[in-house]
Amino acid sequence: MTDERTYWFDTMQRIASPVLHSLANETLHSDLPTETPPLKPSALLEAFGRTICGLGPWLGATDIPENEKAVQAEFLDLYYRGLANGMRPESQDYMPIVGDHQPLVDMAFLADGILRGGDRMIDDMPEDVQDDFLYALQLTAQIKPYESNWVLFSVLVEIMRWKLDDPAYSQQKIDTLLQKMMQWYRGDGIYGDGQNVHVDYYNSYVIHPLLVDAVTYYSDAYTRSIRDVVYQRAARYAATLERVISPEGTFPVLGRSITYRFGAFHALAQAAWQHNLPENVAPSQVRAALTAVIQRTITATDMFDANGWLNIGFYGNQPTMGEGYINHGSVYLCNTVFLPLGLPVSDPFWADPAKDWTAKAIYGNAPVPRDEPVNY
């Protein structure tokens, strides 16, 4: 267990450190690579928001190993300095909101990470930084989401406004958009991305994680009424994700945004962190499976460039695999695999002996429970 957590911790640092250090030093705009200059305006917010989305639980954790505490304190400081630089219009690393739809996505990822981190992500926010952040959220709220998973980004922006005591936040908007997402459910843990179902990982990149967090961090009559079924569907989808991991730690290369790499397991990592795995999926088998995925992905010799930044690709440097909306900031959604670092070492996820995950057990000729659909 100790070696595995250390491996996760070291890998998380390797990926997140360039983003957090550059933004805190107000050099992210000049440091972040780009395939086609100039740098896309939203790239800075993409890198920062997606990094914080994955690190939030660990940044906010109070029960972590001694060897992690100094880095946690450093990264919390970098987060606060980075947020100040990103939200301040005079900054070299200012993250503009107007003129593009993309900021809606990544302000929501940033908000989600802050919510996951709890009070430690907000308590030391200077008043002027909070004012700038809230103003950016208010501008973001004016962006109309597409009829797709994007409705959840608008929901998380509104919840963050509520968390920061913005009297103008809209409960009606939260409920209306959540109702729309719930209407797109297609069964057996799968939501449509809008009216259509796509063969990709967006149920994990966005849909289940943001739905779960919406009903976790915001409470009104409607969110309370759907909370149990949201958790149940997320648990079912987490079980499906666990089963797609091969004995070697590979997984199918399917659909859009595959350059998010092990961000494809956002929903599984979240279910493990929030203790929402189904009964027949042990936390220690999820730890073993995700460790195998991380290790297999990292073996690509050119996953990082010479300066430590993530290259665009699935296994290494494969920029042709990225859609037109993918840039070097986008791929930092891979940080969401690290959500379980927010759990204490005494948690079964870390403390229990490693257990073979489903595919490894099957190919080892071990007994494995049947996989059966659910109707909720």
Score class of each variant (00 low, 15 high):
residue 285 Q to C: 13
residue 255 G to A: 12
residue 97 I to K: 00
residue 116 R to G: 15
residue 155 V to K: 11
residue 334 C to P: 00
residue 92 Q to P: 01
residue 47 A to V: 09
residue 123 D to R: 07
residue 144 K to C: 11
residue 361 A to P: 04
residue 177 L to K: 09
residue 54 G to Q: 01
residue 376 Y to L: 02
residue 328 H to D: 00
residue 219 S to T: 14
residue 156 L to F: 02
residue 68 E to F: 14
residue 336 T to Y: 01
residue 234 A to F: 01
residue 118 G to D: 06
residue 350 W to A: 03
residue 192 G to W: 01
residue 83 L to G: 00
residue 174 I to N: 04
residue 354 A to W: 03
residue 275 H to C: 12
residue 211 L to D: 00
residue 230 V to R: 10
residue 194 G to Q: 10
residue 122 I to Q: 09
residue 344 P to I: 10
residue 145 P to N: 07
residue 260 Y to G: 05
residue 119 D to N: 11
residue 241 L to Q: 04
residue 294 I to V: 15
residue 61 A to W: 10
residue 151 V to R: 12
residue 225 S to A: 14
residue 5 R to V: 03
residue 162 W to R: 07
residue 253 V to F: 08
residue 183 Q to E: 14
residue 88 R to L: 08
residue 208 H to G: 00
residue 290 L to N: 06
residue 267 A to K: 02
residue 298 I to Q: 12
residue 30 S to C: 01
residue 199 V to C: 06
residue 73 A to V: 11
residue 244 V to T: 14
residue 50 R to M: 08
residue 50 R to C: 12
residue 183 Q to D: 07
residue 273 W to F: 11
residue 199 V to Y: 06
residue 286 V to I: 10
residue 318 Q to K: 02
residue 62 T to C: 08
residue 89 P to L: 07
residue 180 K to M: 14
residue 349 F to M: 05
residue 337 V to N: 00
residue 176 T to G: 07
residue 164 L to P: 06
residue 144 K to I: 14
residue 324 G to D: 11
residue 334 C to Q: 12
residue 274 Q to M: 13
residue 293 V to Y: 00
residue 324 G to R: 14
residue 74 E to V: 13
residue 178 L to D: 08
residue 204 S to L: 02
residue 95 M to V: 03
residue 305 D to P: 12
residue 281 V to A: 13
residue 336 T to F: 02
residue 26 E to L: 00
residue 355 K to D: 02
residue 284 S to I: 00
residue 41 P to A: 04
residue 257 S to T: 12
residue 326 I to L: 07
residue 336 T to K: 03
residue 325 Y to V: 04
residue 362 I to Y: 02
residue 228 D to R: 05
residue 285 Q to M: 14
residue 296 R to Y: 11
residue 91 S to Q: 10
residue 78 L to S: 05
residue 13 Q to R: 05
residue 298 I to D: 02
residue 264 A to F: 10
residue 167 P to F: 04
residue 33 P to I: 07
residue 64 I to T: 12
residue 282 A to P: 01
residue 276 N to W: 04
residue 34 T to S: 11
residue 220 D to Q: 05
residue 56 G to C: 08
residue 371 D to E: 15
residue 170 S to I: 15
residue 174 I to T: 08
residue 140 T to H: 03
residue 140 T to D: 08
residue 101 H to T: 13
residue 186 R to K: 15
residue 300 A to Y: 07
residue 67 N to G: 01
residue 258 I to D: 05
residue 204 S to H: 03
residue 22 S to F: 01
residue 347 D to A: 06
residue 263 G to L: 09
residue 266 H to F: 12
residue 127 E to N: 08
residue 369 P to C: 06
residue 46 E to A: 02
residue 90 E to N: 11
residue 106 D to W: 03
residue 291 T to N: 11
residue 253 V to K: 13
residue 153 F to P: 03
residue 255 G to N: 13
residue 318 Q to V: 03
residue 162 W to A: 15
residue 49 G to Q: 05
residue 300 A to S: 15
residue 280 N to C: 07
residue 33 P to W: 08
residue 23 L to E: 06
residue 227 R to E: 15
residue 322 G to R: 14
residue 282 A to T: 07
residue 341 L to M: 03
residue 113 G to N: 08
residue 90 E to W: 02
residue 245 I to R: 13
residue 195 Q to G: 13
residue 220 D to S: 13
residue 258 I to P: 03
residue 230 V to S: 08
residue 272 A to E: 04
residue 101 H to P: 06
residue 335 N to K: 10
residue 375 N to K: 04
residue 185 Y to L: 12
residue 4 E to I: 11
residue 281 V to E: 13
residue 53 C to S: 12
residue 51 T to W: 09
